[in-house]
């Protein structure tokens, strides 16, 4: 028996036999803040402090399954401000970057799917699901989806100073900004910086 064991270890040492190894593990994604430039990283730190103990990392882990985001745009606006301008990034752009509000892809896609009837979406149903006025969803829409990790974009909690923020003025307002990572309608949201048009999946919603 001792000879068999000794022979086994000789074979292992020579490379003729391999011992079982631990299964390969997927490396943990780098911290989201590491993808941000100095300006956005500072904004992200401040937002996390304000939301403490909640953070962008917890927000993404808990509310964004698959770490994918989606957002909607009326087709007319998409054509005018994305297609005709040959935009490289989605969102409102200034000297510091392009700023885009986005929600969990699962939430947006389910809301769209549930609103479909006979091949077209119902703006009232979609608006109710997303806590926004139905008029925001009238006509043909575009639904964009972006993989946060594959695109490597900077993402953080939105803040009051972000371009496009409409501050709520009353408790009844349902289409305005409230700090904390959720829309006034209760849908999780994040601020994506420099979301590349080329890496987003764009679907037409009739």
């Amino acid at each position: 028996m001792k000879k068999i064991v000794a022979l086994f270890w000789v074979l292992v040492a020579s490379g003729c036999v391999t011992t079982p190894s631990a299964p390969p593990t997927t490396p943990a994604p780098e911290p989201l803040i590491a993808r941000c430039d100095a300006t956005q990283a500072q904004l992200s730190r401040e937002a996390d402090q304000r939301a403490s103990p909640y953070t962008i990392e917890k927000h993404i882990a808990e509310k964004f399954p698959g770490r994918q985001v989606s957002w909607l745009m009326k087709d007319s606006a998409y054509q005018t401000f994305v297609v005709q301008t040959n935009a490289k990034n989605f969102g409102r752009c200034n000297d510091t970057g392009c700023y885009l509000f986005a929600a969990p892809a699962s939430v947006i896609q389910k809301a769209v799917q549930d609103s479909m009837k006979d091949g077209t979406h119902d703006p009232a149903v979609l608006g109710k699901a997303l806590g926004l006025p139905a008029k925001n969803f009238e006509g043909t829409l575009r639904m964009m989806t972006l993989d946060l990790d594959a695109s490597g974009v900077c993402v953080r909690l939105p803040v009051d100073s972000d371009p496009g923020v409409w501050k709520c003025t009353s408790a009844e307002d349902t289409d305005c900004f409230k700090f904390g990572g959720f829309t006034s309608g209760g849908v999780p949201e994040v601020m994506v910086i420099n979301a590349p048009v080329a890496q987003a999946r764009v679907e037409e919603i009739r």
């Binding site: 745009m73 009326k74 606006a77 005018t80 509000f101 997303l130 008029k135 496009g164």
Partner: peptide, 9 residues
């Protein structure tokens, strides 16, 4: 263009 997760003009 106005709005957040749903944009219109």
């Amino acid at each position: 263009v106005v709005g957040g997760i749903a944009m219109s003009a």
